[in-house]
Design a protein around this nucleic acid. Sequence first.
DNA 1: CGCGGCATTGACTCATTTCAAAGGTGGTGG
DNA 2: CCACCACCTTTGAAATGAGTCAATGCCGCG
Lengths: 220, 220
Amino acid sequence: MASEQRGNPLARIDAFAVTARYRRGQEICTPAKAAERWYRVVSGAVRWCALRADGRRQIVDLVWPDNFFGFSESVGYDFAVEALMHDTVVASYPRRRLELLADSDPQVAREIRRIAFNAISRLQSQLVLLGQMNAQEKVGSFLVDMAHRLSDDADNVVLPISRHDIADYLAISVETVSRTLTSLKERGLIKLVSARNVRIVDRDALLVRDSMLAAHLSDN
Amino acid sequence: MASEQRGNPLARIDAFAVTARYRRGQEICTPAKAAERWYRVVSGAVRWCALRADGRRQIVDLVWPDNFFGFSESVGYDFAVEALMHDTVVASYPRRRLELLADSDPQVAREIRRIAFNAISRLQSQLVLLGQMNAQEKVGSFLVDMAHRLSDDADNVVLPISRHDIADYLAISVETVSRTLTSLKERGLIKLVSARNVRIVDRDALLVRDSMLAAHLSDN
DNA sequence: CGCGGCATTGACTCATTTCAAAGGTGGTGG
DNA sequence: CCACCACCTTTGAAATGAGTCAATGCCGCG
């Protein structure tokens, strides 16, 4: 995934940045704060959780280094924004100031649009994931995505988050995440080097429904 | 829901608009076209469907009059954009032209940002809906939302789309939509004046999980 | 009047959740 | 350096919500 900063266009906004360091699980901003600022992850990772009245939570966005968050005004639910790892560093910018800067500098405005449109694309993909995929496909494409995003070696990932967080992100239960990983391992699609270290063996098979796989084979 | 046009800010872009009229089910743009243009629904309604290899489809966005679509580059799946009703009118704008205009006119740039941020908010809400809600809540909040969006009388909606489309939007099966409506009717939360005409009787109860309702009652 | 698409209903199946328990693992303090 | 604790992970068995398949009803339109 292309870094969202790429050096120059937003370099000048760093003049307005306030950076802070967080430890795992620490809250990064409250709903009130989030309305006034935009955020960028510098290192580590951040989860944006929707909290529901019955105590359920869903991770609406996982944010990796160089990506932004905080554009949306959440409607209809409470939320929490927390660091996923130790030493997560986040830069934040005053929203009004950036808006003003965007007014005067088309480059900045363009960059903000690009970031926003990217966010829309990612959210739509996630919508399809939640709406159409079974547990197998969810976990499979999560693994492939993670490997792609945070590993040089596209076949070897060290998952930076717990099963619980994965579950909340994919909207399935922790147990199902665990069982699915075991099943993928037993079928030889992945190897579990350790609980967090996954080696992808059959990348293509991870991305399709197993019924599709059977159908595909019988095509030949 | 606030109209996204509100008269002035984007009035000047209408100089670049091409409007067209569609009949129910007609395709509005192909993936190729969508990359070059932005769209606004003038009247009627539009569905943005993700199409998956196994024939499943999901409605990623329902677009009502005055709302925009076409910002995202879809990644990883094919899609179709179709009119939901007869006489759906859609205006489209050349993307590059609008980008240039945004560069020179901060008002336009601001407006585009506003539209994009709204889209992000809506998508996040839908993410929570798909991830956290059961069929009951999905249909319930869909009804409340529709009533709010397209009716003066917030308690009476004429659904502009079929059960099938509702199902694809909420990521449940047609049968479940139907069964759920029947159940809501039998429990007195709604009335089905006709298949498409719904009267909301107990708005609040539609928005909570029934187990929550029981818990809430026993609190007293 | 009859056709075709939409809508409802029933019976059965199945994926996933839930509840429960037992292994692991890493970190902290004695 | 070890022991203990909290938390993460796995696994099993039972319960369940929603999907699938199939049949029937409904309604508008030619």
